[in-house]
């Protein structure tokens, strides 16, 4: 698969960050920090690695992506519309009454593979998809994007055992490893380190990368796809609130949206990054 130009992806990411901030500000609520940390992960999937067809979202041979950290959905929606799953004009309905762009992802919006939001369930759902496709001898892959705070949930580790037990080489977990959860730093709220060792001890092929560096992300996704006989997980080191200095690494921005003046300041800052 030919790799897209990293500069193009970076420019797209800046635009998507701005779109996400506008969606959140327009909604007046939502999850800012964990959406901004996700952008490059989702862009590298939807614009590079995933085998999919936005014009035929139910195509049986497609790779599946489950956003287990459903609260990051503003980033998912922005990326899905960018690649053509639904019109961009719908983005500003995010979180509004009657919208398909619900506060947490819901089945029914093209491109959304599963309703998520109650943390810890996505990896199990993804395993079920992968096992079902194994029966059907499909070569499609399944990706599951999780938050690091989400890994506190015991069910994630039940699912980790299952994927390893069934040697699900078609499974690739990606952790948006931004080190912050609602109550503060993950290490202070519930220490999960050594995280890589945990996954390794559960039988997973563990890859680590800078989750904002497209070269590293694409390498990790390729390496995961080439690895056979066991599931892979990419610990993508990210920055919560990435791209906006006053949002970065601040737990406060987990569950709030920017006000108008904050939005304008944030947009100016992102515009400055492209020059």
């Amino acid at each position: 698969m030919e790799r897209p130009d990293v500069k193009v992806l970076q420019e797209k990411s800046r635009e998507l960050r701005k779109t996400v901030l506008k969606m959140l500000a327009n909604a007046g609520s939502g999850h800012t920090g964990g959406s901004l940390s996700l952008i490059e992960i989702l862009v590298s999937l939807y614009m590079y690695k995933l085998r999919h067809d936005p014009k035929n979202p139910k195509w049986e041979g497609r790779d599946r992506l489950v956003l287990s950290k459903g609260h990051g959905c503003s980033a998912l929606y922005a990326v899905l519309s960018e690649v053509g799953y639904f019109p961009k004009s719908e983005l500003m309905t995010f979180r509004k009454f009657g919208t398909r762009l619900q506060g947490h992802p819901q089945l029914g919006l093209p491109g959304v593979e599963a309703s998520t939001g109650s943390l810890g369930q996505g990896l199990s759902i993804a395993n079920g998809m992968a096992l079902a496709m194994r029966i059907d001898k499909s070569d499609a892959r399944v990706y599951c994007v999780m938050g690091d705070g989400e890994l506190n949930e015991g069910q994630v580790w039940e699912a980790a055992m299952t994927a390893a037990h069934y040697k699900l080489g078609s499974m690739c977990g990606i952790v948006d490893f931004n080190k912050i959860q609602i109550d503060g730093w993950c290490k202070d709220t519930m220490n999960m380190e050594p995280l890589g060792d945990k996954w390794r001890s559960f039988g997973w092929n563990v890859l680590e990368c800078d989750g904002h560096d497209f070269g590293q992300l694409m390498n990790a996704l390729d390496d995961a796809a080439d690895f056979e006989g066991a599931p892979s997980v990419i610990l993508a080191h990210t920055i919560k609130g990435k791209g906006v200095s006053f949002m970065e690494n601040d737990a406060k921005w987990h569950g709030i949206a920017p006000k108008q003046d904050e939005l304008e300041k944030a947009l100016r800052e992102i515009d400055g990054q492209g020059r």
């Binding site: 599963a114 079920g128 059907d136 299952t162």
Partner: peptide
């Protein structure tokens, strides 16, 4: 498919099977 003593994982995995036509 055996899930061990892990009902939560089994139920969500069942959802994944259903989403893939089973």
């Amino acid at each position: 498919f055996s899930f061990g003593v892990a009902e939560q994982d089994m139920i969500s995995s069942a959802a994944g099977f259903a989403l893939s036509g089973k």
